[in-house]
Write a protein that binds this DNA or RNA. Structure first.
Lengths: 198, 198
DNA sequence: ACGGTAAGCTACAGCCGTGTATCTGAGCAA
DNA sequence: TTGCTCAGATACACGGCTGTAGCTTACCGT
């Protein structure tokens, strides 16, 4: 007795959303390796029994959360500003990476014990829904409009921006500033597509 | 009673080396997050009590191992082959990354719960001893000899090769082939220093 | 208003890693 | 040879996570 429940009982979607949010936060904070039903339950303020009714282990909860999370925003290239659009695409990537979902994905990708299953599920859900990587959407757009030779847009070139942003995130732990992103665009991406900035 | 010990008892350095090897292998396999005294002890075939006599927890064992491991080999730029030297530098990096020590380092860098202490110890030991990143050693050498303008060798440019190799390792899990490395050099690094390959 | 579904609450046995406390006996030095 | 040091082998209590079981009770549809 005693009104030990200030909030009313959650059911269905509301509860599941809370759990999804909880897993993503949890994995972002402690990593896939340390993900436990206990931790998820505590964070979502739900007993473990509720979790076991629906999922068999923490990884399943995580996968389910990834399948239901909002897709990553895609860069929308404007009219005539390749440089600006590239910076915006990278900014989009950084913002997403700092999200719980982004951190969760990072944790999964770098887990030495990550099973192929999880890896695949990740690519299906998070990356396949999008047109490609962040910068390559922009680059393809401008290549089609003849701003630079399309044959220069190789897989390696499409990866340059994301690779440098990722490295910076790993090395320093801090998000790159706009100046950093501009430097990446000017000094690495643009030269690779044959456009040396003035 | 029963020669339950085929091998004789290890002492001092021999034992410690075995333990160091064990931690690095262990962390490479399961990640820092799942590192336990139990696991290290099993792999080194030594009781946990021996570990506790010297170290207080698994991280300490790992740090000690990192401090005592062989430094990373440095690229030695040859006379007049920037392209070839860059590929060799990246190859060196890939080879090292596949090493237990390399995998251990990767695991540490990407651990969400990684303490600043471990992070710092890592940079002191593994990176500070070297002249810089793998490709930057090569690039600096050729910049000094006037093969390209030295002001193009920015921090961003110095990171391009390592960043792309890292991304590939993370994405595919498989080591890049020589063709991949050549593509990285030709399509990303050389253009960035103003040298478009023929 | 009623009844079914499922969330919330214990409880429990089992496993695994922890940290400590002994005890033994091998290896080494004086 | 003697004696010290320290690796090796148990043993144990503790705490955390697991997976399951049983019960109560809030919510919701009819």
């Amino acid at each position: 007795m005693s009104e030990h429940n200030a909030r009313s009982r959650r059911r269905g979607e509301e509860l599941i959303n809370a759990i999804h949010t909880a897993v993503l936060e949890e994995v972002a904070e402690v990593g896939v390796a340390r993900l436990t039903m206990e931790g998820i339950g505590k964070r979502a303020a739900t007993p473990r029994t509720t979790l076991y009714r629906r999922w068999s282990d923490p990884i399943e909860v995580l996968l389910d959360a990834l399948y239901h999370m909002h897709p990553v925003e895609e860069p929308t290239p404007g009219a005539d500003d390749l440089r600006g659009d590239l910076v915006r695409a990278l900014r989009l990537m950084v913002d997403w990476a700092l999200t719980p979902a982004g951190r969760a994905v990072a944790s999964i990708l770098t887990d030495p014990k990550g099973s192929p299953r999880v890896h695949e599920a990740l690519f299906e859900r998070v990356f396949a829904n999008r047109g490609g990587t962040f910068t390559s959407t922009v680059l393809r757009h401008y290549a089609e409009r003849g701003h630079f030779p399309a044959e220069l847009l190789t897989p390696v070139v499409a990866d340059i921006g994301e690779a440098l942003v990722t490295k910076r995130l790993i090395d320093t732990g801090a998000p790159p500033s706009d100046a950093d992103l501009k430097a990446i665009v000017d000094q690495a991406i643009l030269p690779a597509v044959g456009l040396r900035p003035a």
